[in-house]
Design a protein around this nucleic acid. Structure first.
Lengths: 329, 329
DNA sequence: AGGGTTAGTGTAAGCGCTTAGATTTCCGAT
DNA sequence: ATCGGAAATCTAAGCGCTTACACTAACCCT
């Protein structure tokens, strides 16, 4: 391994000078710089990241903890799209700041109990952590946040211990519907709504109606309220078929994925082909990105931006550790 | 920041002992161990990755260099699926060895001229690099490989300077066709083949015919040879329409993506809707994973495995640096 | 009892880099 | 020439960890 010392020796200068040249800063005489650069080139020197980190006290690396894939490949698309888009947003931002991105996937055991040892080790390798919401228990997040800045990439705002960058239900929902209308030419929409008074459902509903108002060519042919469960979605699907079986909508927009799955189930049972006869779109509890077939390209952008914003927030937090934790929409 | 010294002081032992406890090895008396563990717990100590790396002379991090996304979102699916699946394969493997994964995306300027400074910096942070083929010039790969083990994730074997883990054209092609038949019920297939004597084309052709032989319910209604260019694909598509316009195949299998795009173009010009009327599948020069709509779920697994194999090879190489570079299928 | 083991622990030298502060060199002004 | 101050460069002390080696104490032989 070629070290700074090797370069210094070959160039006949001290390590300090080499370091200065490497970082382009400071005043170094031109001929010295040239000599050093030549030596670097000749030896193929590249600074060791670990040593730099140790010395600088900063690693210039942020960590992204993604939710481990579902076992079921067919259902995986959602997660795939979601985290992969987040990843791209994050990576882009990270890169523009000349940092690096360390990434890991974590099992969700359903109880939010992660592999603590691995999480700890991970935290030792980064300056800050970006973590998706909902699969690591609050207790662990808190523990983590005590040691290193943490920003949660979340579905919905709420009171939290750590920084949160949340998706915006309103615009998310609006994006889905806009996509259906603009890109798929949807004319007849059916809405499988959430509970009347659930905050998330309200925002998503408003997003949908907002877009519909601006697109009179698309008609809302009906809606059903569910309670965010698969069963209630199935029920809604059955009702929909009973009432509109003769003239199916072009698309069914569901307030969450669970219900969308229910609807799919009802359709499958009735022999209705998706997406040939009717499109069914859910709203990922984190962000709308699932169950699209073909995938919802126009929603990729917002998800990516979510990653970017989260990353930006994290970098801020690393730079100024005592920022008041906040929830961003 | 809590350091080893803090722990040692609180537990009343030397840093060596703490280190030993942390790594679970070595002989440490039980009560000492307990005392140390208590101190670690109390202080919330987590070893600093940079310091460990520097000291151990190994970072336990491998780097994955992905091709930067296309600007065009609609065409992005291929890359999305491809690299995201590779990523998952790699991550899984990396994790099982308790290493970490650093990832970056690189612009492809078409000439294989990367941002050398960034690539260099990246290489300083990892023990080995995994890199997709075809967007970083051989010259740069060589330079990189001189400093750190590199494994190329490739589409096709060939003579190389660095280690290569290549996709297997035969099985890749077979996977595509199997998917079409098994999952999409394809009965009538059209083949846009490559040049008769191109090695890649031969393998892919054999894969296709192999599957057809085992699935007599699917018929090959025709084929055209192209030269892997978009234009030749377009031509093939036009010929196909001229001859089979009245009874379109269920699916068109192309020997590469360029030609598939050409076919899509021809179809678009003729008003043939894809994938409603006919499915068009390409064969990514790296692996078949693109242009599927809906995505080719059954091909996810092989791509993921490609990532895993590449990663395994890289770890081997890091462990035994003087392995003879090899091409693996 | 003396010598040889062995288990348990401590000491301290790095790992490759950055950087504050010390030192030398350079240069124009006197 | 000499001097002062700026510019260029060097010295060396860490950064937090691992680990070879040194050491101590306890134990088992003969």
């Amino acid at each position: 391994m070629v070290t700074l010392y090797d370069v210094a020796r070959l160039a006949g200068v001290s390590t300090a000078t080499v370091s200065r040249v490497v970082h382009g800063q400071d005043r170094v005489r031109d001929d010295t710089r040239t000599r050093v650069l030549r030596a670097i080139e000749e030896l193929g020197y590249v600074p060791d990241g670990a040593a730099q980190s140790l010395s600088r006290g900063r690693k210039d690396v942020i960590g992204l903890v993604c939710k481990e894939r579902e076992v079921d490949y067919a259902l995986e698309n959602a997660g795939l799209l979601y985290y992969d888009q987040v990843l791209r947003g994050v990576e882009e931002h990270v890169r523009s700041h000349n940092w690096s991105l360390l990434i890991t996937f974590m099992q969700s055991d359903g109880m939010g109990e992660p592999d603590v040892a691995r999480l700890d080790a991970f935290s030792g390798k980064v300056d800050g952590i970006l973590i998706g919401e909902g699969f690591i228990g609050a207790r662990h997040i808190k523990r983590l946040a005590a040691r290193v800045p943490v920003v949660i990439i979340a579905g919905t705002p709420g009171d939290r211990t750590a920084d949160v960058v949340a998706a915006d239900n309103f615009s998310g929902s609006a994006a889905v519907v806009t996509h259906l209308i603009a890109d798929h030419g949807t004319k007849r929409l059916f809405h499988v709504d959430g509970p009347l008074d659930a905050p998330d459902a309200i925002e998503r509903r408003l997003g949908l109606h907002h877009v519909l108002r601006d697109n009179p060519q698309c008609q809302l042919i009906g809606s059903e309220h569910g309670i965010f469960s698969t069963r209630s979605g199935e029920q809604a699907g059955e009702n929909l078929l009973a009432r509109h079986g003769g003239a199916l909508p072009d698309a069914v927009v569901c307030a969450n994925d669970q219900m969308a799955i229910g609807v799919l189930r009802a359709f499958a049972a009735a022999g209705v082909r998706v997406p040939d006869e009717v499109a069914v779109v859910g709203f990922d509890d984190i962000y709308p990105a699932s169950l699209f077939d073909p995938p919802l390209t126009s929603v990729l952008q917002p998800v990516r931006m979510l990653g970017e914003r989260a990353c930006a927030r994290l970098l801020d937090r690393i730079a100024v550790p005592d920022l008041t934790p906040a929830v961003q929409l």
